[in-house]
């Protein structure tokens, strides 16, 4: 009886320990300021993309009544981290599209999919009148390019290390026809840890 009781007690204690230690999953606000680590974060992405969108909307091309077409190049990642820079350009593109003042053309990465779909529609199974014609893609007026750099500094103290991280996103908008730079801007972010 004593053995049974002690086994039961051990079992209950282990269940309680397991329940208490199990990680709790909670939903959180994706828009809140995130400061978990010093690395490139969702907040950094939101800050730099919003700053660039605001700047482009104040620029001369947002006053063009013809709704200029922009094509986006891949941002150069010159930081020491792996950052999928397409997330930054996708965010900028989504926000600018919502303004209704700027249009976007197919970029190099999306071109293959676009051509493949046009080719597919030339198939005999498609209604000729409802299929798109070849040679109708709109050429862009402007080309958006840029780079993201980071400068990392750290200083070791007795028990901890102080880290300083500086990010700079630089974007440029070029007139494709004339090669003239029509807009450029930069956004800096500095973070420290320790």
């Amino acid at each position: 009886m004593n053995l049974l009781m002690s086994k039961l007690l051990i079992g209950m204690i282990s269940i309680l320990t397991f329940v208490a230690c199990a990680p709790k999953v909670l939903y959180d606000d994706p828009k809140k300021v995130e400061t978990l680590t010093i690395s490139f974060s969702s907040t950094d992405l939101q800050i730099i993309s919003q700053a660039m969108v605001d700047s482009i909307l104040k620029s001369v091309i947002a006053n063009d009544e013809n709704k200029p077409i922009i094509v986006i190049e891949e941002l150069k990642n010159k930081t020491s981290e792996y950052i999928d820079t397409s997330v930054i350009t996708d965010s900028i593109r989504a926000k600018l599209s919502q303004s209704g003042l700027i249009q976007f053309g197919v970029n190099i990465d999306e071109l293959e999919g676009q051509i493949s779909e046009i080719d597919r529609q030339q198939d005999e199974y498609y209604d000729e009148n409802l299929s798109v014609e070849k040679g109708k893609l709109a050429g862009a007026d402007y080309r958006l390019s840029g780079s993201l750099i980071s400068i990392d500094k750290f200083k070791k103290k007795l028990l901890k290390t102080k880290k300083d991280k500086f990010y700079k996103l630089s974007l440029q908008l070029w007139n494709i026809k004339t090669g003239v730079l029509v807009w450029a801007d930069e956004k800096d972010i500095r973070k420290t840890e320790g």
Binding site: L57, Q98, S99, G100, L101
Partner: peptide
């Protein structure tokens, strides 16, 4: 801080 409206 300078802001701009998202659309017209």
């Amino acid at each position: 801080i300078k802001l701009i409206s998202p659309n017209k």
